[in-house]
Nucleic acid binder design. Sequence first.
DNA 1: CGGAATCCGATATGATACTG
DNA 2: CAGTATCATATCGGATTCCG
Lengths: 120, 120
Amino acid sequence: MGRKVIDNPNVCSLVHAMNIIGGKWKPILLYLLSNGSLRFGKLLLFTPTISKKVLTDQLKELEEDGLIIRKKYSEIPPRVEYSLSDNGKALLPVLKALSNWTIDTYSDINFEECRIISEE
Amino acid sequence: MGRKVIDNPNVCSLVHAMNIIGGKWKPILLYLLSNGSLRFGKLLLFTPTISKKVLTDQLKELEEDGLIIRKKYSEIPPRVEYSLSDNGKALLPVLKALSNWTIDTYSDINFEECRIISEE
DNA sequence: CGGAATCCGATATGATACTG
DNA sequence: CAGTATCATATCGGATTCCG
């Protein structure tokens, strides 16, 4: 009786990747930041059904994993700007490829009609 | 007071993508099937810490989402073979790109040392 | 052999109220 | 404005048992 060893960095790196960007809102947040920095309130506005707590948690995790940068201005009232790090920017093409695969594969779903609408 | 509409198929397709491949073991299962079909028992063997229930659930979801094909042979004892569908195969380059990004970005982690070992 | 059924704990997500 | 703190709920992942 031998031994089967599956020694594959691809598998393990994928598991790691899913831990990092697998959160429900994380791809959205990264995409929202792809055109420049946004304040906490704007991110909250653009993802309408997210709660403050969850947004805070996910942003904190993205920052800890080095995908976004949090810049706090010591003003009253406080202001915080979030933006993509270089690592976060490097992920955008991958997210784009994943998006394209999804659109091609599930052509019965009209992603054009999927809208996120906020009052401002 | 105007209205802010974020109408982006990229965002929505990404959410859909994460629903489909965001499961803890799904990238692993897809990768394991990249070299050909495998039986239920082999998949269970190659992902040692997974339970039967979770493996069953995840395979069922992957099948329902059209990424894998389940072929059941009416034998005693029963035999079931799982393989990638064309859609599943089309996802492999994306998973590879995600893997590469992860390895490049988190170079402090040695994914080479990450092993999955099973007796057989 | 390849599940299904059941139960359970852990984690993820969410609603609400409060604060510097 | 940008969070904390608290509580509640939902979903996920896992252990065990049973079955054709």
